[in-house]
Design a protein around this nucleic acid. Structure first.
Length: 202
DNA sequence: CCCTGATTCGC
DNA sequence: GCGAATCAGG
């Protein structure tokens, strides 16, 4: 795979959103996270300087530039006319007392400002057990490592499969999604926000 | 052990 | 330019 325009654009977009290199690599396919990181660096967008490419006109007096970041917040000061920047709206957080777990994995610690009016594409809709998720589960179960109870670790999917009363019982055992007890596929069916589960009378 | 990005360097 | 290997953290 090569870095086509589209792929680079996806890379830029996702990186800007704070997605990890591995996630981007997974999305793009055909590349490793190393490739993504390498490309990111070559593109010169390793760190987000908030739009401004930063003045780099200065020479390099120090031949030994240690990676010790000065951590000085760049505060552009237009000497003449300090235009009053409209500070970004805090955006009122609607506290939802609801018991909805709503797995919001990783919000980038970066400055992610969502422009008002941006419709937030990654809204997976009100969740129900999507047929796709279920399909994914059955598919995953083929690739499952089928480990036993003793083999469970902190990082093995603990999704049980089969009947414990038979020999045909095992745990998924695939790598868990960080923080969760299950692999990605099983997380999908395990954490339903709520609803969807109309108790069926037996 | 899992993950993260950063860097190097042969290709 | 590319990315695997490696490094350096969490």
């Amino acid at each position: 795979m090569s870095w086509t325009d589209e792929r680079v654009e996806t890379l830029k977009k996702m990186w800007g959103e704070g997605q990890s290199a591995s996630q981007i690599a997974k999305e793009l396919g055909g590349v490793t996270r190393n490739a993504v990181i390498g490309k990111v660096h070559r593109l010169g967008l390793s760190n987000r300087t908030a739009g401004a490419p930063a003045a780099d006109a200065a020479a390099k007096p120090e031949p030994k530039a240690k990676p010790t970041a000065p951590k000085v917040e760049a505060k552009p000061k237009p000497a003449a006319k300090p235009a009053p920047e409209p500070e970004a709206a805090p955006a009122a957080e609607a506290e939802e007392p609801a018991a909805a777990p709503a797995p919001r994995p990783n919000l980038p610690a970066r400055k992610q400002i969502i422009p008002a009016g941006q419709p937030l594409p990654p809204q997976p809709s009100a969740n129900e057990i999507s047929p796709e998720a279920l399909a994914k589960v059955s598919e995953v179960e083929k690739k499952a490592k089928k480990i036993g109870l003793m083999d469970l670790t902190e990082r093995t999917c603990k999704w049980p499969v089969g009947d414990p009363a038979t020999d045909d019982f095992w745990f998924c055992g695939l790598p868990v999604q960080q923080g969760k007890p299950y692999c990605e596929a099983h997380v999908g069916v395990a954490f339903q926000p709520m609803s969807a589960r109309r108790d069926r009378r037996r």
